[in-house]
Amino acid sequence: MLIKNPILTATNLTKRYGPGCAKCLEQTGPDYGRNQCPVCGTVIACAGVDLAIHPQEVLGVVGESGSGKSTVIKMLHFDIDADDGHVGLHTGKIETDNRVRNQNVLKFSSFGKRQIRNAVMGIVYQNPHLGLRMNISAGGNIAERLLMAGWRNVGDMRKRSAMLLDKTEVPISRMDEAPRNFSGGMQQRVQIAKALSNEPVLLLLDEVTTGLDVSVQARVLDLIRKLQQEMDVATLVVSHDLGVIRMLTTRTMVMKNGRVVEAGLTDQILEDPQHPYTQLLVSSALH
């Protein structure tokens, strides 16, 4: 069930690469079909992005390659610094929530951001190399994350790692093996186990199934859907694949050239897209 208050509210998220000039914003975007400023050459990876994520909901972000989807997710996870914007959190989980409430967490120190990330977020990257240390064991990867979230007892951590790997359908017998030996689908499952280890309030998924075989993709999606329902975790799903969006999300935002061109209920986006770009996206996905 959706509850009225969002757990995360972001406004005007903006990220640019380059010096920037007065024309950057008005000369880029879907109307021009580009995200690079013709005056100063700056790339506007995303600009003016507003979004709210409610408890337990699955929100999708869809758009072509380079539209700025990953940039949004990475700013929310504090992997990259935003140039502009406000992010407010109301997770009800962090002890420091009082300090967090009504604050722009983008402005926190890197220590503060790390605390928030460890307490309430989990992320799965498209590229498992970003999310996992390939040379330490699968169990060790999860234990490392648990340590950051404040766990101390080795036995407990091992038990929880085993439980999570089991949940994500990674054979426990392979817990002590390094993920470098695993298949792509298995690596993604270890990443998912790791992302869920601290019982996050917000799960961020960036192209989790891209690059996997179709049948493996389907199984990973099944798993995500199952876990999402079981754990009631609010989830942001970023994908260029409308099939993934259709299967996992209730609401969807469509991005192009660094801007949100349309947002709505997922079935509405798919059956009655309003923006020319969304119409193109939907019709090319169906044929």
Partner: peptide
Amino acid sequence: PDTEMVRLRQREIGYVTQFLRVLPR
């Protein structure tokens, strides 16, 4: 607003067509 509509769909308004959206497994 979209989120309010989602709430109504979860709590009050149902919709059924002739096609089942089959979920695998």
